[in-house]
Each structure stands twice: as structure tokens, then as C-alpha cells.
Amino acid sequence: MTGGPSGREAARRLAVYGPNQVRRREKRSLSRLLSAQLLRGLIYLPPLRDLFGTAALPWDVLAIIATFAVIVWAADELRRRRRITRPVRASAKDAQGAS
């Protein structure tokens, strides 16, 4: 059992598939995310209720729904950033301790 493909196979895969890289998600601005949330709420506006068959919700409920989505998104982004930066901090401390 080997540790990986042979040199010939690795060269073939590189030619066919390209270098092995992690694709990054496109960063979206806060204004773009907020506008997307507002657009999702448009189906509850009175002129569009019949068209989309949505229920008539009071404005205070709509405000809570829109706010909740933004809060969940923000909490998820903070959790992701914390998870991404945590290993960097640890490796930086290791590098300082090694020197």
C-alpha cells in the first residue's frame, strides 16, 4: 500500500484537474445581505400577498422575522471567523515559543 499516487499519475491529475486548491466562498457585503433579507420579505406586502398566496402578517411580526434572520446570520459569521482565526493564533504562539 502506497502513500499516494505515483509521479506519473500525479502529473496526469495535475494536467486534467489543475492544482489542488480550496475554493473560497464569495464574500458578500452587509448591505447586500440586508437587501436580500428585505427582498425576501416583499412577498408579505399587501399587493403581493394574493400573487404569492402568503398570509397577512402584522408589521411587527414581519420586523421580528427580518431581524431574526440577520441575527442568525451575524452569529454564524462570528462563529466562523472565530473558528478560522483560532488556529492562526495558536500557530503564531508556537512560532514565538520556538524562537
Rank of each mutant, 00 (worst) to 15 (best):
P87A: 02
A10Q: 08
R81F: 13
P58S: 06
I65V: 13
T67K: 06
R24H: 10
G18C: 07
S35I: 08
R32I: 01
A66Q: 15
S99L: 14
V72E: 12
Y44K: 01
S91Q: 11
L78H: 00
E77H: 06
V61G: 04
A74L: 10
L42H: 05
A15E: 10
R86L: 14
D50V: 00
E77L: 15
A10G: 00
R24L: 14
I43F: 05
S91M: 13
R25W: 11
A36M: 03
P5I: 10
D76M: 03
K27E: 15
Y17C: 07
A56V: 05
P5H: 13
R28P: 01
R25D: 15
A95V: 02
L51E: 04
S91T: 09
I43V: 15
L34S: 04
S6H: 07
R79I: 08
A66T: 07
P5F: 14
K27P: 06
V88C: 09
R89M: 10
P19L: 12
W59H: 09
F52E: 03
A66W: 07
R80H: 04
V70R: 03
E26Y: 00
L39W: 09
P46C: 07
A15Y: 03
R32N: 10
L34T: 01
V70H: 00
L57C: 01
N20P: 02
Q96S: 09
T85W: 12
A92L: 13
A95K: 06
P5C: 11
P58K: 05
P5Q: 14
R8K: 13
A10I: 06
I64C: 09
P87D: 07
G3P: 05
A36H: 02
A10S: 10
R79G: 08
G18F: 07
L57S: 02
R32M: 10
P47G: 05
K27Y: 11
A95L: 10
R32A: 15
A11D: 13
A11T: 01
R79N: 10
W59I: 10
R12V: 10
R28S: 04
R8L: 14
A95C: 07
A74W: 02
W73L: 11
S99A: 12
S6Y: 03
G41C: 03
N20L: 14
R86G: 08
Y17G: 05
T85F: 13
G53W: 00
L48D: 01
V88Q: 13
V16S: 03
L45P: 00
S29A: 08
G53T: 06
Y17M: 08
V61N: 01
W73A: 12
I71P: 06
W59L: 14
I43R: 15
S99D: 13
A69Q: 14
R32Q: 15
I84M: 13
I64N: 07
S29Q: 04
D94S: 09
R89Y: 11
A98R: 03
L38A: 12
L51F: 09
Y44G: 02
G97Q: 12
P5R: 12
R89C: 05
R23W: 08
D94T: 06
I65L: 15
W73I: 07
S6R: 05
P19F: 08
I65W: 12
S99H: 04
V88D: 11
G41K: 00
V72Q: 08
D76T: 03
A95F: 08
I84Q: 15
L30R: 04
